[in-house]
C-alpha cells in the first residue's frame, strides 16, 4: 500500500518531466535531423540523402562562417574569463562583507536587462553620430566623425559585454565557498601570488570556470542580436545563415542542416572542454 503510493507519486512527478523533455526537446531535435536529411529533387518531391550537408561543404561561405563563429566565440569566452576573473575574485574574496552584496547586485542588474537594449546602448555610443565620436570631435582629437560600428573588434567587445556576467556569477559563487585559510597557507608555504593563483585558486575554482565558459560559449555561438546590430550586414554570424535559410529563402531543409551543424559543433566544443578539465555537466552548469 505505502509502496504503491510512492510509485504512483513518482509516476505523477515523472509525467510532466517526461512530457516536457520528449515533446519539446527530443522529438523536435530528431525532427530537425530528419528534415535536414531530405533533399529536394523536384517541387514537392523529396528524397533521403546528405545533399544539404554536401552543399554546406561545397560552399566555402557556409563553413567559413561556422568556423568564424566558432573561433570568435572561443576568443570571446577566453576574454570574458580573463576580464571577469579578477572582478569575481574581488567580489568574493577582497571586498568587505557589506560592499560584496552591493557589488554583486551591481553585476546582476545589467544581467537582467535585455541584450537588445544593451546592443542599442552600444550603437548610440559608437556610431558615426554617436557619443564617443561627438566627444572626440568636440575635444579636437579628430576632425571628422569616426564610425566605430561594423567591425570585428566592436562585435567582440559587444559580445564580451553581453555575456561576461554569465562568467562572473558562477565564478563568484565558487570562489565564495573557498576557505581563505587555503590561500594563506599557500603564501605561508612560500608561494608567491602567481603560484598561489595557479596552484590553489584556479584548481579550486575550476567547476565555476568551466561552467562559466560553457554558458558563455553557448550564448555567444548562438547569439543573433549582438553580431547583427553591431557588426551590420557583413558580420557573417552562423545564426544569421540559419535565419536566412529559414525565413528569407524558405529553405527549411538546408536551414535544419545548418541548425544541426551548429548544435553538433557547439556540443563538441563543450564536450572537449569538459574532457580536458575533467568536469561533468552536472557539477558545473547545474550548480549555478
Amino acid at each position: 500500500m505505502q509502496s504503491d503510493i510512492k510509485k504512483l507519486s513518482l509516476i505523477l512527478l515523472f509525467a510532466p518531466f517526461a512530457l516536457w523533455i520528449t515533446l519539446l526537446i527530443i522529438i523536435p531535435h530528431m525532427g530537425m535531423v530528419v528534415l535536414s536529411l531530405r533533399e529536394k529533387v523536384a517541387p514537392r518531391v523529396y528524397e533521403f540523402g546528405f545533399g544539404n550537408y554536401i552543399d554546406f561543404i561545397n560552399e566555402p561561405i557556409y563553413w567559413n562562417t561556422l568556423l568564424r563563429t566558432g573561433s570568435m566565440s572561443i576568443l570571446v569566452t577566453f576574454l570574458a574569463l580573463i576580464i571577469g576573473f579578477p572582478i569575481a575574485y574581488y567580489i568574493a574574496k577582497i571586498a568587505g562583507k557589506r560592499s560584496r552584496g552591493a557589488l554583486f547586485l551591481l553585476c546582476l542588474i545589467p544581467l537582467w536587462v535585455s541584450d537588445l537594449i544593451r546592443a542599442f546602448g552600444w550603437i548610440l555610443l559608437l556610431r558615426e553620430t554617436g557619443v564617443v565620436s561627438s566627444f572626440l570631435l568636440w575635444t579636437g582629437a579628430v576632425n571628422q566623425p569616426i564610425e566605430f560600428l561594423y567591425n570585428d573588434v566592436t562585435v567582440v567587445v559587444g559580445l564580451v559585454y553581453t555575456v561576461i556576467l554569465f562568467m562572473i556569477v558562477p565564478l563568484v559563487s565558487t570562489l565564495d565557498g573557498m576557505d581563505d585559510a587555503m590561500i594563506e597557507a599557500g603564501y605561508n608555504l612560500g608561494g608567491n601570488g602567481l603560484t598561489v593563483l595557479r596552484r590553489i585558486i584556479v584548481p579550486y575554482a575550476m567547476p565555476g570556470i568551466v561552467s562559466g565558459c560553457i554558458v558563455v560559449f553557448m550564448l555567444t555561438a548562438g547569439s543573433y542580436l549582438t553580431p547583427i546590430l553591431l557588426g551590420g550586414k557583413n558580420s557573417s554570424w552562423f545564426t544569421e545563415q540559419i535565419y536566412d535559410q529559414f525565413i528569407t529563402r524558405f529553405n527549411w531543409e538546408s536551414g535544419a542542416a545548418f541548425g544541426f551543424l551548429l548544435l553538433a559543433f557547439t556540443s563538441i566544443v563543450v564536450w572537449l572542454g569538459l574532457r580536458l578539465t575533467g568536469q561533468t555537466l552536472a557539477n558545473t552548469v547545474a550548480k549555478q
Binding site: I25, P28, M32, I214, A221, L262, L263, S267, L281
Partner: peptide
C-alpha cells in the same frame, strides 16, 4: 546548453 535559435527552429 542548446542554442536558443536551434530550440526555436526545431
Amino acid at each position: 546548453v542548446i542554442p536558443g535559435v536551434i530550440l526555436g527552429i526545431s
